[in-house]
Design a protein around this nucleic acid. Structure first.
Lengths: 203, 203
DNA sequence: TTGAATAGTTAGGAATCCTAACTATATTTG
DNA sequence: CAAATATAGTTAGGATTCCTAACTATTCAA
């Protein structure tokens, strides 16, 4: 019934499977870290994620519908989350003049404080990455970007803010570096963005 | 209020942060894929994860307590999950003779069928990884292993089945490859395991 | 053989996140 | 310009997740 020690488990047969297993493990770590953080602050995981997101993104992304897409949840779920955050005094709604159905979500000072403190929750992942050599970092980032790009193309992840899918991006060829037409500057591999504030989806 | 296009967002300032952002995105993808899969099969995400886990692991790991540790959940949560899977006819309990408190969880044929079909849920992640060059794969794996090893050491992930924390493992130095004392063979970087069935924790 | 540790369950409840149906505003178009 | 349609967000209600606390039953240790 038990496997012989010399009989490799399927998951161990090739490097690809091992990489996927590693990514799964890391995904789980994110879940655990987020869950720990949320218990400490008496906030739900999604509430924390929303707070952190609000800290770094511009007005047109600070809306219920956008957040629902961003986190792959329904609008009611986000609506509830926002209501709860408002009751806790961590965000406020700013209704817009030209469209009174909609509003922009702003962090209150307390909300900013908590989001800032909390954004450090991924520090534990940062430590081992920081130790890598520059070349390895570049390779790692490129590999991960490749994975995400594929997930974008197959529709698993809907929201896109990476250079690879941006109208302003001109990919490098051979020794020529990439180029961003908006920033008007060359981009090294290690400068490719995952979440660019200026991203504009190319068709 | 809006950022100037030339004012880089904090998240874009350095490669480390971008790598973390990428890992977060991929974590989210796993969550989405798992959730989609679970809707299709009318199983909860944790139920699916348990089924897949049972497909690949040996008797001493097929128990409530072990599963609870594995997935960072409480025993009652797993207990419920098992009860539900049993009612659906996907697993059966085999009580042990020497300890009647405990039982080993076995997949039924139907359970195996579903787990097997479902294990493919990560195929969408496999495609882009498969495209990488061998060198890049090795680098990617090593980098991820470094991250996981750190998460293990800091207690974020409790269960460990990687070569790096195994009594049978003798790490390579310089050009000398790693060595597994149990398999009695050299291990290339790309052969380092994430989830070895023979893992034995070194102190 | 008594006390402590361990495996798993039950009970109850807070929170997550969904679908369906809704209000209200904005946009299109005939 | 009025009617139809689309869009932003909310409400209501419910299935599910996952927890804590308290429990039973068994095993191990002193």
């Amino acid at each position: 019934m038990n496997k012989s020690p010399f009989n490799l488990d399927q998951q161990n047969e090739n490097t690809d499977s091992r990489i996927i297993a590693a990514l799964e493990r890391i995904s789980q770590a994110f879940r655990v870290l987020l869950w720990n953080e949320s218990k400490e602050l008496s906030l739900s995981p999604i509430q924390i994620q929303v707070l952190i997101f609000l800290l770094h993104h511009s007005d047109e992304k600070r809306k219920v519908t956008y957040l629902a897409d961003e986190f792959n949840m329904t609008k009611p779920t986000i609506s509830d989350t926002i209501k709860s955050l408002e009751q806790k005094g961590l965000i406020s709604k700013a209704y817009e003049l030209h469209d009174t159905r909609s509003y922009i979500i702003h962090l209150t000072n307390e909300g900013k404080a908590i989001a800032g403190r909390t954004a450090a929750f991924s520090n534990q992942i940062q430590v081992p990455i920081n130790k890598l050599k520059a070349d390895d970092k570049e390779n790692l980032l490129l590999s991960l970007i490749g994975v995400i790009d594929h997930l974008n193309k197959t529709g698993v992840i809907t929201i896109q803010r990476m250079c690879l899918s941006c109208v302003h991006f001109k990919p490098g060829e051979g020794k020529q570096p990439h180029f961003c037409k908006l920033l008007n500057k060359n981009l090294e591999n290690s400068e490719l963005r995952i979440d660019c504030p200026e991203h504009q989806l190319s068709n």
